[in-house]
Structures are given as C-alpha cells and as structure tokens.
Design a protein around this nucleic acid. Structure first.
Length: 577
DNA sequence: GCCGTTTTCGGCCCGACTGTTTTCAGTCG
C-alpha cells in the first residue's frame, strides 16, 4: 500500500471502532496517526520507522507496517467481519454518531440506509431507549437528503453567501460587534458551514435570536439556545449557519475558539494546560485561583500565551503554535502594490484600458498590467500581433496621463497544445509583461503538459505562468502538471508562478505555495479580473498566500515600480546568458 | 492507543444544545 491508502485504512479503522463502541481515545489515536502521516512530507518508504513519529506508538506503527508490507491489517479485517459496511455512511447523517448507529445495529439489526428507513417507517426506532419520535423523524428527513447534498461547498460560493448574509447582519439591532469565524475566516478551499460571532449588549438574547431566525432564506432552525442559533438556508444548496452570541468580554476568545481549526485549538489548549491554565471560549482560567482572564482582542490572547499573532489563515494545527513563538511576518494586503493580470474589452473584459486603470488606481495600487488574451483563444477574441501593437500604443497613451501610477503593457499568451507559443518573439519582446497560460488540451499526458510549460519557462520574454494547474475548485481537477518540478524550474529560470486570486481557482493552491517557500520560487498574486469587482479578489489571493505563510520578499506584488521593472528585466538577462 | 523532569497509570480540549430523560448521554463543532 502507498501512503494515501494507509492513511485511508487508518481512518477506516477509526470509523469502524467508533461503531463498535471502542474507547474514544483509542479511535482518536488512529485518527491522529493518520493525520501525522498526512502532515509528514516524506513517502512511506522514506519513513522507515513510523513509531519514531509523534503520536504514533508501537500499536499503530505495527498496523502501518502491516498495511505497507501486506496490503492489509488484521485489526481492520476483523472489524470488517464484525460490522456491516452499510453502517458506515449512516455516520454522516445529522444527529447520528457511533453510539446510536451501534445501538440501531445491535437492537434492530439495521445494516444500511434501506433497513434504517424501513425501521423508521414502521416506527420501531422510537421504541429504543435514548431514541424517540423526534429522532426518528429527523433520521427519516436526513435519509431523504442523503447524497443530494455535497458535504463541503467551494469557497467562492460561500463567499457570495457570506456577503449576502453580512448585509443583513450589519442591520441587526443590539449587536455591538460581529465577525466571521470558522473555515471561511481561515480561507479553506471548501467550506462546510458559515460561522458568525455576535457580541450582544443585552441580557436577554430572545429578541436578537428572533431576528436571526427571520433572516432571508431560512428553511430550518437546527438549534436555538441562549448562546447559539443554528440555521439552515435554502439557497442553490442548503447551507448551515451557526451564530454564537457572546458578551463583549468573551468576544475575542469566542472568536478564536470558533475560528479553529480544531487541531489549532487543541494545541493552544495544551499550551495553556502546561502553564496550569484552561482555555475556553470564555477566556483563560487559572486552574489554581479559578480566576478567568478575558481579552479585548485575539492579539492580546496570543500574547498572553507567549505567542505572536497567528493569522486565521495559518491556524491549521500544523506547527504554527511553535513557529509563532518568534515573530514571523507573512504578506499582508497592505504590502500589495499592484496587479499584473487583468482583461479589458480588447478581449473578454468588461471595461476599457482607461476605465480599468482608474479602477485599479482607486484601490490604492501603484502599478498594473493589462494582459488580454492572445489569438489562440478565439472565443475570448484574443489579440493577434497586429492588435497587440495597437493596444501597446493605447496603453502608453493611458499611462502618460498619470504621474503616480504606471500602466504596463502585457499579454496573457496561450501555450498551444503542440508546445509552441501563440505570439511571435519580436512582439513579445516589446511587451512589459508576458504571462503564459494553458487553456486547451487539458487531458494531455504529464510529459506533454510539462513540455508545454517548459517552453514558456525557458522563453526569455515569459515572466509568469498563469493558473499553473488549471484547476477549478470543486469543478475540475486541472491538467496533470508536475508541480514540484515546475516550482524548481520556475525558480531556476527566474519565472514567477501565479497565485490566481479568483476564489474559483486559487491556483496555485496554498499547499503548493507552501512548498514554493522551500524552492524559492517567486509568486505573483494576480486577480485575472474581467470586471472591476473582480479586482477585489486581491484580498482573497493575499489571504491564500498568508495561509501558505509566504513572506513579502517572495511575492512580486510587494515591489515598487522600479523593483518590479528590475524583476521583469531580470528574466531576459538571465535567459540570454 | 499514546504519553510522561510533576506521572509507567491515569489522564487524554472544552462547552452548547437536543432529545431524551427526570439528571444526562450523545452529538457537534
């Protein structure tokens, strides 16, 4: 078995054990082991002794080695023979966990979704102790939904939903301050539900809870208690929203708590515990004096624990609590000085060169590049050599209107399926910025794709490779690029790789960007805007770079115009040698 | 099952809400 399969098997063991009613610490030990393997960069053969890893002991190490060497593990085979496979998906049903599923199996011989449905319909489930009529109805409803609802939704969709919702939240009475929390605040690529923390200035939360339940599109109230309201919205997909109500003293710690991630919280609590303190959403309690300290901001909270402020995006539980014992500066939105990838009416954009320049400038940037599509992309009315030359003149004309702002002439040039570039060298050399992209023949072999990318990397005029994997989050995988090799070659040739800031893309992903720090590859955060509002995606791109813990120096956008020109010039000089 | 200059046994992050009970187990985040 390879590493992925071993990780999968360990997680399966944990799930089966859950139904078997094993000690929860035992099941979580298997989960932890799977996670440890996942977070280790090495392959299975490189990890010779799994037991040497943190939180993998003698027991799980033996299982891992058994899986690796024999493709199976006795403990898993035994579990499989004891527990029907059809029970596993039942754990995904809202309100059903290991214990309840076990009870259904043991007392009603339920083995899968079909037999569960039957048992509910014949009202046998409500007879079980710990179950009741309401539980039975909920199970039936959940069975109906099963399969029709994706587990997690792409961040782009959730950002839209969040924006819609926040217009309403702003108007709520008696809310002192509020914030996004959860995986959206951490800028995960896919999001399960939305979380908001509301600081309320009243004793009785009934009126505010009533307001929440009257929000648009609410189709169901999942939970409604003094400090928590959970709703389901009927949008194009059902979306769950959790509101936490808190007083202002606990706001910062509540926000931290519900921003997570879970693993991050566990690490924070362990730190506190080692100091004789306990962290909860209400503050930090001294276990001896029982005194609870509260904080006015997350910054203060982290400082109290001897840490520097960890940005939400970086709270993954993958070592940031160690890393931020020293100061560590990731890129911030305020470091970004410009945008190198956008479209105008010359190809498939919505605004003219001049209008786009005004939009970018109004966002406080110092420079930008116009990069329309090249002629291969006919559907986008891509530019041929003759139109490029005319557009350069237009761009120079607009640029001359500004003293404090620079508009560069660029192109987003296609790399054709045969590995040739779409625009003649002579014209390319007249442009300030050349971005190379793959928009066709996604199903080519890895060798062919890499040949195409190599052609761009090695060309003296190509500065950036756009959306390097071609993926669309939740919709398509992209083409088969060898990203590790791409990162190295880009670093070697002085070519930047794009972090496409469009939330549908986020390409390269934060996971790959994190590797870019090791290879020393330059990253350009580009909005690829086709409309003015898409220019605001820079915020999202920067958050993704932050998630990867990229630093200012590695990001093209943090340069002023002189430094930017030096970078662009550098590619030509380097490849000429 | 894992882990340990407070420990080789006895802990393991913490709390809200629901639905079932009649004080709490189970689920969830």
């Amino acid at each position: 078995m390879n590493k992925k399969e071993v990780i999968q098997a360990l997680e399966t063991i944990a799930v089966y054990m859950e139904i078997k009613g094993e000690n929860t610490f035992k099941t979580s030990a298997y989960r932890k082991a799977a996670q440890t393997l996942e977070q280790d960069e090495r392959s299975l053969s490189e990890i010779q002794t799994p037991a040497s890893l943190n939180s993998i002991g003698k027991g799980t190490a033996a299982v891992i080695e058994e899986l690796r060497d024999t493709n199976q593990a006795q403990v898993l085979e035994t579990l499989k023979s004891e527990i029907p496979e059809g029970l596993i998906p039942l754990l995904d049903l809202q309100g059903l966990g290991g214990r309840k599923v076990a009870k259904l199996y043991q007392e009603l011989q339920i083995t899968d979704a079909a037999s569960l449905k039957q048992a509910c319909e014949s009202r046998r489930v409500r007879e079980l102790s710990g179950f009741g009529a309401k539980t039975e109805e909920k199970i039936l409803a959940a069975l109906e939904d099963m399969g029709s609802r994706p587990d997690r939704l792409p961040v782009a969709f959730m950002l839209e939903t969040a924006k819609m919702l926040e217009k309403e939240i702003k108007n709520l009475a008696d809310v002192k301050r509020w914030a996004r929390a959860g995986s959206l605040r951490r800028m995960e690529e896919t999001i399960k539900d939305l979380d908001y923390i509301l600081s309320v200035s009243v004793e009785n939360t009934d009126p505010i809870r009533t307001q929440l339940k009257e929000l648009p599109y609410v189709s169901e109230v999942i939970a409604d208690g003094p400090s928590k309201v959970s709703l389901e919205l009927a949008l194009s997909y059902p979306v769950q929203i959790d509101f936490r109500l808190t007083d202002d003293d606990a706001f910062a710690t509540t926000l931290h708590h519900f921003t997570g991630s879970k693993d991050h919280n566990v690490q924070i609590r362990q730190i506190a515990k080692s100091r004789g303190e306990r962290v909860s959403e209400y503050g930090i309690e001294n276990l001896e004096t029982k005194e609870v300290t509260s904080f006015s901001s997350e910054e203060d909270f982290f400082h109290y624990l001897g840490l520097y402020y960890i940005p939400p995006e970086a709270r993954a539980g993958t070592g940031e609590t160690t890393m931020y014992q020293q100061p560590y500066e990731t890129v911030e939105r305020s470091d970004i000085k410009g945008d190198l990838h956008m479209h105008t009416t010359w190809s498939d954009g919505a605004l003219s060169v001049e209008e786009m320049a005004e939009e970018v400038r109004s966002r406080g940037h110092e420079w930008m590049a116009v990069t329309d599509h090249s002629k291969f992309l006919q559907v986008a009315h891509g530019l041929d050599e003759e139109r490029i030359l005319r557009q350069i003149e237009e761009i120079r004309r607009v640029n001359d209107q500004y003293e404090d702002f620079t508009v560069l002439a660029g192109i987003e040039m296609d790399i054709r399926p045969d590995g040739t570039l779409d625009i003649e060298d002579e014209v390319l050399s007249r442009l300030d910025v050349v971005i190379a992209s793959i928009h066709s023949s996604f199903s080519q072999s890895r060798t062919d794709i890499m040949k195409r990318l190599d052609a761009a990397l090695e060309h003296p005029s190509v500065h950036i490779i756009a959306h390097p994997t071609g993926r669309l989050i939740g919709r398509r995988e992209g083409y088969d690029a060898d990203v590790q090799t791409l990162l190295k070659k880009a670093a070697k040739t002085g070519t930047a790789l794009e972090l496409n800031a469009n939330p549908n893309r986020l390409d390269l992903s934060a996971a790959w960007l994190r590797k870019a720090a090791d290879t020393g590859t330059m990253i350009s955060i580009n909005t690829d805007a086709h409309t003015p509002d898409m220019l605001d995606h820079m915020e999202i791109g920067t958050a993704s770079a932050k998630k990867a813990l990229l630093q200012k120096e590695q990001i093209v956008n943090t340069r002023n115009i002189e430094e930017l020109r030096a970078f662009l010039q550098g590619k030509q000089e380097r490849t000429k040698r």
